[in-house]
Amino acid sequence: MKKNTQIVSLGRDKQFSQGVVNPPVFRASSIIFDDLAAMHQASKGKCDGQMFYGRRGTTTHFALQTAIAELEGGAGTALFPSGTAAISGTLLSFLRAGDHLLMVDSVYEPTRDLCEQLLTGFGITTTYYDPLIGADIAALIQPNTKVVFLESPGSITMEIQDVPTICDIAHQHGCITLLDNTWASPINSRPFAMGVDISIQAATKYIVGHSDVMMGCATANAKYWRQLQHNSYLLGQCVSADDAYLATRGLRTLGVRLAQQANNALQVARWLEQRPEVDHIRHPAFATCPGHEFFARDFSGANGLFSMVLKPATPQALSAFIDNMTHFKLGFSWGGFESLILWISGIEKIRSVTHWDASLPLLRLHIGLEDPADLIDDLARAFERFHLAQP
């Protein structure tokens, strides 16, 4: 099946849906058994879609897990209460005291905080690497390197990594490869075909798609699925049936939402690219984005999230630009139906081995489902305010 057909069809088996269009919400803590024999039988299948205890999941959860795993091409999917929980839960499932972690330097800031504030206390060391390192990552692999973590495109600055090359070298040295695949979603890249062992998503973003649920997921290949499944359970990770239902419902429109938002974003980004105030656009589909050649090779589409780098400007001008927007809302996260804008300052402080020119302000935009003409008008008025505030 093609991706859009899969999105509509997966996770709707009668064992989950009981014949209705959307798998119903089954909330549960205790599961009641008829007798000891039934309990023992359920215990044998508690890791394979058999309802056993609420934390193991209900058919509402199993429907979502099955759909995501098949969309991404993995053996199984674990659900977490947020994207950050999916990252931390997966790392803790595979790292032990004395292990070494290779972490991409453009990683999501809370992931960096996890490495520096929590993993160090567990005796796990981290080395950051340039997202564009490619085959040269071999020089950073130590005898105790256990995991290589990728995020492509990178958080905020959008560098695209050579994922197949990095994964190939990591596997030659016996390392496990983890990818934060949130930007691509389950439909715009094929992480397992590129050599990724575990693909992590902040389902809060495009899977849910409506800015009303916090959720994360991690999908593993057959080699690592059982370990991820078991350890995430030991860590007590689970989500509510209501949230799983909303994520499944959001998933059904992922293809059309993502296609429209990607198209809208390209229109807005191309308009911004022509503005004299803009130094360059950081959109993976643009040649100005570092690693663009890997996007062209490995991705089947884009989404609504990109960054624009402005020429030097005062904080007052940037505040004037962002304040009083009509359609762009000021807020964190992304992936919903609405457009968002955020001024990201201090990037140079969250880089270890790569340089960021602090004199060039970066604005991150998420383009929603509004008409692009209205968004462009909003930005045009913002540039007018920007110039009035410049000395």
Score class of each variant (00 low, 15 high):
Lys2Gln: 15
Lys3Val: 10
Thr5Ser: 08
Val8Tyr: 13
Gly11Pro: 09
Arg12Glu: 05
Gln15Arg: 14
Val21Pro: 00
Val25Arg: 09
Arg27Trp: 02
Ile31Asp: 03
Phe33Cys: 08
Phe33Arg: 08
Asp34Arg: 09
Leu36Gln: 15
Met39Ser: 11
Gln41Thr: 11
Ala42Ser: 13
Cys47Met: 14
Gly49Ser: 05
His61Glu: 06
Thr66Phe: 01
Thr66Cys: 06
Ala69Cys: 10
Glu70Lys: 14
Leu71Gly: 01
Glu72Asp: 12
Phe80Trp: 09
Thr84Cys: 13
Ala86Tyr: 10
Gly89Val: 08
Gly98Asp: 07
Val104Trp: 01
Leu114Gly: 09
Gln117Asp: 11
Leu119Asp: 03
Phe122Ile: 05
Ile124Val: 15
Ile124Gln: 03
Thr127Met: 05
Asp136Ile: 00
Leu140Tyr: 08
Val148Tyr: 03
Gly154Met: 05
Met158Ala: 10
Glu159Met: 10
Val163Lys: 00
Val163Trp: 00
Ile169His: 02
Ala170Gly: 14
His173Glu: 07
Cys175Trp: 01
Thr177His: 08
Leu178Glu: 03
Asn181Pro: 06
Thr182Ala: 03
Ser185Val: 04
Ile187Trp: 04
Asn188Asp: 14
Phe192Tyr: 07
Met194Cys: 06
Gly195Met: 03
Gly195Leu: 01
Gln201Gly: 00
Lys205Gln: 14
Val213Ala: 08
Cys217Leu: 12
Ala218Lys: 01
His230Glu: 14
Ser232Gln: 10
Tyr233His: 10
Tyr233Cys: 07
Leu234Ser: 06
Gly236His: 08
Gln237Lys: 11
Cys238Asp: 12
Ala241Leu: 04
Asp242Met: 09
Leu246Pro: 00
Arg252Trp: 12
Arg252Leu: 11
Leu254Ile: 15
Gly255Met: 00
Val256Gln: 09
Ala262Leu: 01
Asn263His: 14
Gln267Thr: 15
Glu273Leu: 05
Gln274Arg: 08
Gln274Lys: 11
Glu277Cys: 11
Glu277Gln: 15
His280Phe: 12
Ile281Pro: 04
Pro284Phe: 06
Pro284Met: 09
Ala285Pro: 02
Cys289Gly: 05
Ala296Ser: 13
Arg297Ile: 06
Gly304Thr: 04
Met308Gly: 04
Leu310Arg: 04
Gln316Phe: 07
Ala320Thr: 02
Asn324Phe: 13
His327Ala: 12
His327Leu: 15
Leu342Met: 14
Lys349Gly: 05
Val353Arg: 09
Trp356Val: 12
Ser359Cys: 02
His366Val: 03
Leu369Arg: 12
Leu369Glu: 13
Pro372Cys: 04
Asp378Glu: 12
Leu379Trp: 08
Ala380Tyr: 05
Ala382Cys: 09
His387Val: 09
Leu388Ser: 13
Pro391His: 09
